[in-house]
Computed example of a mutant assay.
Amino acid sequence: MRTLKQELAEALREEELFWRQKCREEWLRAGDRNTKYFHNCVKGRRIQNRILILLDELGREHFSEGAKGDIAVNFYRDLFISSNPHDLDSIFR
């Protein structure tokens, strides 16, 4: 029973650390526990960082996750495979 309590306490500490890192907010000095506030911070960051639309080479908008993934893969594949990059200034801006 004692080891079970220790394992539970360790799991709770790890979960709190996980949410602290995901939140990227400064924790309260009192060491606030796993609360709704920090979960909402994480949700807010996910919404803020989401890419809604990507444009392909032809300027068409793509909304689906699969299409956006394909566009990103093709962009970086072309970027790193090219032995003679055409526009280095735009890459380093």
Rank of each mutant, 00 (worst) to 15 (best):
L4K: 12
L4I: 08
K5Y: 15
K5F: 06
K5V: 07
K5R: 14
K5A: 14
Q6E: 10
Q6W: 06
Q6G: 03
E7R: 13
E7H: 09
E7F: 05
L8M: 08
L8I: 08
A9W: 01
A9C: 01
A9P: 00
A9V: 00
E10Q: 10
E10G: 05
A11C: 10
A11L: 14
L12K: 15
L12H: 11
R13Y: 09
R13M: 11
R13E: 15
R13T: 12
R13G: 09
R13C: 14
R13V: 15
R13N: 14
E14S: 10
E14R: 15
E15P: 00
E15T: 11
E15R: 12
E15C: 13
E16T: 03
E16C: 01
L17R: 05
L17C: 01
L17F: 03
L17Y: 02
L17K: 08
L17A: 04
W19E: 01
W19A: 01
R20D: 03
R20C: 04
R20Y: 04
R20G: 01
R20A: 06
Q21G: 09
Q21F: 09
Q21R: 07
K22Q: 12
K22V: 04
K22D: 03
K22C: 08
C23K: 04
C23V: 03
C23S: 15
R24Y: 02
R24H: 08
R24E: 12
E25R: 12
E26F: 06
E26G: 00
W27L: 08
W27I: 06
W27A: 03
W27D: 03
W27Y: 02
L28M: 07
L28R: 10
L28F: 08
R29E: 15
R29T: 14
R29D: 15
R29S: 15
G31I: 01
D32A: 14
D32I: 13
D32N: 14
D32Y: 03
D32C: 13
D32Q: 15
R33K: 12
R33M: 05
R33D: 06
R33W: 11
N34D: 05
N34Q: 04
N34I: 02
K36W: 06
Y37S: 14
Y37L: 15
Y37H: 14
Y37E: 13
Y37P: 02
F38C: 03
F38A: 06
H39M: 10
H39S: 09
H39Q: 13
H39P: 00
N40I: 05
C41F: 01
C41V: 05
C41M: 13
C41I: 02
V42R: 01
V42G: 03
V42M: 02
V42E: 00
V42A: 05
K43Q: 08
K43V: 10
K43W: 02
K43T: 08
G44C: 05
G44W: 04
R45Q: 06
R45T: 05
R45E: 08
R45H: 10
R45S: 07
